Amino acid sequence: MELVEMRQTQKAGDNSINVQGDVVHFGVSYRDAREIAKDVFEENIVKFTEVARGTASRRAHEFTEKLISSLPVEALESLQDPDVQRSLFYAQQEFACSGEKDLGELLLKLLADRMQSTERGVKTLALNEALRTAPKLTSRHFAALSVLMICIQTKLGANSVEDLHRSLSQVLSPIVKDFQITRADVAYLEYAGCLSSNAFTTNLGDAFSSTYPGLFTAGFMEEWISEDSRSALIPLTQECLRDPAMIQLPILPKNEILEIADQESFRPHKQEIERLMGIGSMAVEEIEREISGIDEDLADFPKRYNASSLVNSQLTAIGTTLAYTNLKRVVGDHFDAELDVWVH
């Protein structure tokens, strides 16, 4: 059944209440929201000179207009929350002082998510801290966080090698253009609460081999499965993507395959499943060469990534929030997951 959204328009006086169909809205209107947001800035802005104050006010009002017009009406109610007003003023103040377009876009997205997060939890707290941290970072810091998120914490929806190449070209390539990270940058990101040190080293090839084992395998032959497990495991296999003469395990991350192996019907064959996972796997060097060949932006990316201290780092909740928001800012709908997948 196709659902069709019905829209109606009404006009009424300033002191009246509009009622349409089944929807009744008694909360903050768009006009009210603009006034609240304007007052938040004007009543809290520090004393600049007349010229500086005019510039700051113009930037803050521009920021506010973009924010309010991007939100659904139900989110405007949050402007009556003191915690939201504090976050709003901080974002207004930072953009008013810097005027940087990229920072403004990032703050807008963070604040929009914050205003639509009504429950006090890890996500809300992370958004609050991300709003305070963002102005302290540079474009290459944001790029590094987003790169780490794509390579370590994200499984792109790819069911073929071609799908993965296309997704990486759409999502990773635009980010790596700004990817240039030093050991001092990584230390600073740790100090800012965006990263934490990891005892393990995860090179790019290792990360992709773990996340996409079904896309980086030459497969195996049916007779290579132990005779005791063959009849039970054949239904779990599929034609190998890289060689139709071979078969392979499902196109899932290693941890999800191991979860399947723990199911009652496969548990007696778990050891054999683990053995098959290692058969036909491409060497990390092969995987990195393949990634380098996707497009010119990724040509030297594996080398630069592996030479950085990111191989020993992991994102915190704040770092993940900033990485996600920057990704959405740069690649838009090519990255369509919600922040709740990582921070909740």
Rank of each mutant, 00 (worst) to 15 (best):
R7E: 07
G280R: 04
K123R: 15
E227N: 08
I17H: 00
I150K: 05
V19Y: 05
L241F: 01
R183D: 05
V176A: 08
S98W: 07
I291D: 04
E65K: 12
E77M: 03
D81F: 00
M221V: 09
H61R: 14
P268N: 01
I251Q: 04
P235A: 08
R230Q: 11
A52M: 11
L88W: 14
F48Q: 11
G157W: 06
T201F: 11
E50P: 00
I260Q: 12
I257H: 00
E227Y: 07
R242I: 02
K38I: 07
Q20V: 10
N44T: 03
P244K: 15
V311D: 06
A91M: 07
I17P: 00
T325K: 05
G54S: 06
Y191M: 12
A91S: 15
D81C: 02
A37F: 01
E43L: 10
S308C: 04
A143S: 15
A207F: 01
M115P: 01
T138G: 14
A158F: 02
S57A: 04
A33K: 15
R132L: 13
N203K: 11
R132I: 04
S169P: 01
E223G: 04
K328L: 11
A96W: 10
E239A: 11
E119V: 14
K47N: 07
Q271C: 07
S146W: 13
T217N: 13
F335P: 10
L106P: 04
R304F: 07
Q248A: 11
V4Q: 10
M246A: 13
L195D: 00
A96F: 12
A33S: 12
A192L: 15
I36H: 08
A337V: 11
N255P: 00
R120N: 08
R140G: 05
Q180K: 13
A245C: 07
L156C: 13
D39E: 11
S169M: 02
L241K: 12
K11A: 09
M6R: 03
F142D: 06
I273K: 02
L110F: 07
S98H: 08
Q20F: 09
G99L: 08
I291E: 05
N255K: 06
S87D: 12
Q116C: 12
A184P: 00
G280H: 02
E94P: 02
L276A: 08
A245K: 13
D228Q: 05
G27R: 09
M149W: 02
S196V: 15
E119H: 06
E42H: 11
K11F: 06
